[in-house]
């Protein structure tokens, strides 16, 4: 008669099979996950050469499609805003009549500097890194800085006219 705490041949083999199966499952899950993860090549890495900083006007924004964003003037500086809404990722268009960014999906509104004004967005619009190369602004669309927390606006530019999105969105 064998003792209960003795590792029998059957118990040992059962455990080995279970361990082997577990290892195979873990390896399969890891391989599958790694296989499906987007490669680094699929992200936006190409630098986008745009205008000289002085060409960005003091009012309105300049849309840079290739960088998925806008250039806008903050005093002497020019900043690049990502057009991806911080709320749920829709593209935020610039509304000419109100001179604001207005997201058509859920109604988030931002001022010309991407500062939060209304809607469900949890933060200000994200910013893209910029450098000046040979007198031209170059945007790095892969280098995104999350927008700052909600707070008072730093510029006094109230809506210039009717909004592009309807009320109640």
């Amino acid at each position: 008669m064998t003792h209960n705490n003795e590792l029998s041949r059957r118990k040992f083999l059962t455990r080995m099979w279970a361990a082997g199966g577990g290892l195979m499952a873990a390896a399969g899950a890891w391989t599958g996950w790694d296989l499906l993860r987007p490669s680094a090549a699929s992200s936006l890495t190409a630098q986008v050469k745009t205008l000289p900083p002085q060409a960005v006007p003091a009012t309105g924004v300049v849309e840079i499609k290739a960088a998925r964003g806008y250039l806008t003037r903050e005093g002497d500086q020019v900043i690049a805003l990502s057009w991806k809404c911080p709320h749920l990722g829709c593209r935020v268009p610039w509304c000419e009549s109100s001179q604001e960014f207005e997201c058509p999906c859920h109604g988030s509104v931002f001022n010309r500097l991407g500062e939060y004004r209304a809607g469900p967005s949890p933060r200000n619009m994200d910013r893209l890194a910029t450098t000046v190369v040979d007198g031209s602004l170059v945007i790095d669309p892969g280098n995104v800085t999350p927008g700052g927390p909600l707070g008072p606006e730093t510029i006094d530019e109230p809506p210039a006219g009717p909004r592009c999105i309807g009320e109640g969105h």
């Binding site: 993860r37 699929s42 991806k84 749920l88 990722g89």
Partner: peptide, 26 residues
């Protein structure tokens, strides 16, 4: 776009799940 962005709000794994679903940045 909205649905996969919602997945990104899930703590810890959300961002990864969203990326695997989208298969890229957008």
């Amino acid at each position: 776009t909205v649905g996969t962005s919602m997945a990104a709000y899930v703590p810890i794994i959300g961002e990864q799940v969203s990326n695997v679903l989208i298969g890229g940045q957008e």
